[in-house]
């Protein structure tokens, strides 16, 4: 995973499979940098993610909580079509943090 910084924003480019096994390392890498820099915005870029189970939802919710502690926000961007079903099921759309191809995912409710 590549993490880039620009101004008050940190972007994490997630890649490969996100499951319970891989989520731990991703979480530790992101949190270490977030706690050090305390950015206003954390972007989670999903364009390189080939598979995700509900561990990915836990990962997003956990980062959302962490950023809230610092008064910052999370944006989930470039969600591939194959992950939309999981994102919609999670209820995360209610938090208004998911963008897909520049547009927000429609709430299924």
């Amino acid at each position: 995973m590549r993490i880039s910084e620009s101004g008050d924003c940190i972007t994490a480019y997630l890649k490969g499979d996100i499951d319970h096994h891989s989520a731990r390392g991703i979480r530790e890498d992101i949190d270490a940098l977030v706690q050090m820099k305390q950015p206003a915005l954390l972007k989670l870029d999903f364009s390189g993610v080939s598979f995700m189970d509900s561990s990915g939802i836990g990962l997003i919710m956990g980062r959302y909580r962490l950023m809230s502690l610092y008064g910052g926000t999370v944006k989930v961007v470039n969600v591939p079509e194959g992950l939309a079903k999981m994102m919609n099921l999670s209820g995360l759309s209610a938090l208004d943090i998911i963008e897909r191809r520049g547009e927000k995912i429609e709430s299924t409710k």
Binding site: S55, I57, L89
Partner: peptide, 14 residues
């Protein structure tokens, strides 16, 4: 462990 509590819901939905 940051489990979202969605495991069975996902199975039922998919």
């Amino acid at each position: 462990d940051e489990r979202a509590g969605l495991g069975f819901a996902v199975m039922q939905s998919f």
